[in-house]
Design a binder for these strands. Structure first.
Length: 431
RNA sequence: GUGCCUAUGGUUCAAUGGUAGAACUCCGCUCUGUGGCAGCGGCGACACGGGUUCGAUCCCCGUUAGGCACCCCA
């Protein structure tokens, strides 16, 4: 087998998270755990593999995700499975399957993990990507939960030191008022058909709400004058939205009403929102908004899945997007350097003693790093420098013979010889 | 799925129709008894396939991958 034929790069749209970038991810995971605890979300993990029907039914047959972005596979037994493209449907499935409606309601859960969508990779977009999501399921259909999900998400971003966060908020009503609005919107666009781009002409046929997403400048002009769904909400939807806004005011959420937010998946109703963060370009000249995630209410999902009507709201962030935004905003999350101990041993006897010494330190909860495979003292000191260690423990022939060890302060160069059995205590004192 | 751009060591960049240089990184030596500096040395690359040519890393075509945008979304 020739090496030449093996493709040694990661699969298109997937990426490695290398050791030197792990600290950002770890920080993010910690932030997630922390904020989840504060707002009493419990963790839930669902499998990466699910039945194909779940998403066909849940997300919607006509959505892009289901139409062309799912990784599907057939098992030897003939079952049609899919690598999960999103989290909400899977959580709804677990809720129904395990009778979680019998736990105290509403159920508040969070998750993070990999998801899969087959599309063209691009900035902040991968085929395998990670999402973190928060869901509040069951209980009352109270707008306070809508705001709770948003505040949780907001606090997560704040804990990562993001500034200039904004929440674009909208209501897309219910089946009844949305249908009326769609007609109205279509009528309006029909009258302006000549002004709009060819994509929008297509949208008129297959996804009218998406007309509001177009960034073409002619369409922008048409959009400005377009009827707003907020004016057409039915009385219950209008009341719900009004209360959401009142709670949002109370919590001083950095929100703005954005009638152009329409989410793609079928199961959304009423409250929908997206989180943005402002990014300064490299030359500092202009700022752009980066969408980190979004969500909304999905009161219809449980009915779609054949369960009784269950109110629910949730949201998800793209973790890669958060990480990229952290980099783009130059946010420094590096932990303060801890004092590190570095063991240096010269000669086979010293190395043996050194190994047990590392164990002894480990037993006291102190990590000792080393580069014990190297032989010369100089090389090992150099390695200690690269590690950024504070103290070196030097064990040579002489020290082994005398049952002692040198403690070298790597910043000042001051050295002290102490007995081997006292060294752990001595280091503890210095820490 | 569509359009535009790109492809040279681990990284960032050069040069060239006669097969490649540097900086940083990595490894080693100066230096089995004291690191950061310095000096010296070493490993290591033309994405793949085809075409034009005496000869292609360079020109052309295709494939693949990456970037950006559209679509859509996280």
């Amino acid at each position: 087998m020739s090496k030449k034929n093996i493709n040694l790069s990661s699969v298109k749209g997937t990426h490695d998270i290398l050791p030197h970038e792990q600290f950002v991810w770890e920080k993010l995971r910690k932030g997630i755990r922390h904020v989840a605890e504060i707002y009493s979300f419990s963790r839930i993990d669902t499998p990466i593999l699910e039945n194909l029907d779940l998403f066909q039914r849940g997300v919607g047959e006509a959505t892009d995700i289901v139409e062309k972005q799912m990784y599907t596979l057939t098992t030897k037994g003939g079952d049609k499975l899919v690598l999960r493209p999103e989290g909400t449907s899977a959580i709804a499935r677990a809720y129904i399957q395990h009778g979680l409606s019998h736990m105290s309601q509403p159920l508040k859960v969070y998750y993070d993990g990999p998801f899969f969508r087959y599309e063209q990779p691009q900035a902040g977009r991968y085929r395998q990507f990670n999402q973190v999501g928060f869901e509040i399921i069951g209980g009352e259909n109270d707008p306070i939960y809508d705001v709770q999900v948003m505040i949780t998400a907001l606090r997560l971003l704040e804990s990562l030191k993001f500034k200039n966060i904004s929440i674009h908020l909208n209501s897309i009503g219910c089946k009844a008022c949305r249908a009326i609005y769609k007609k109205k919107l279509l009528n309006y666009y029909k009258n302006n058909k000549k002004e709009i781009c060819k994509d929008c002409n297509r949208r008129m046929l297959d996804n009218p709400l998406r007309l509001l997403d177009c960034k073409d400048e002619h369409c922008e002009a048409v959009k400005k004058e377009a009827p707003s769904i907020i004016d057409d909400l039915c009385t219950p939807c209008r009341k719900h939205f009004k209360e959401v806004l009142e709670y949002a005011e109370e919590l001083k959420l950095p929100y703005q009403i954005d009638p152009f937010i329409v989410r793609g998946l079928d199961y959304y109703n009423r409250t929908v929102f997206e989180f943005f963060v402002e990014i300064e370009s490299a030359d500092g000249e202009k700022t752009t908004s980066l969408a980190l995630g979004g969500g909304g209410r999905y009161d219809y999902l449980f009915e779609i899945l054949g369960h009784r009507n269950t109110p629910a709201i949730g949201m998800a962030f793209g973790m890669e997007r958060i990480v990229e935004a952290i980099k783009a905003c130059n946010i420094n999350l590096l932990p303060r350097q801890k004092n590190k101990i570095f063991l240096i041993a010269i000669g086979i006897e010293a190395k043996k003693k050194g190994l047990s010494l590392i164990e002894e330190f480990a037993g006291s909860g102190i990590n000792v790093s080393e580069s014990i495979g190297k032989n010369s003292l100089g090389a090992q000191l150099k390695a200690s420098d690269k590690e950024g260690a504070s103290w070196a423990l030097i064990l040579g022939q002489k020290e082994v013979f005398k049952e002692s060890v040198i403690i070298r302060d790597l910043k000042t160069g001051v050295q002290e010889t102490v007995l081997l059995k006292k060294v752990v205590a001595e280091i503890k004192k210095r820490l």
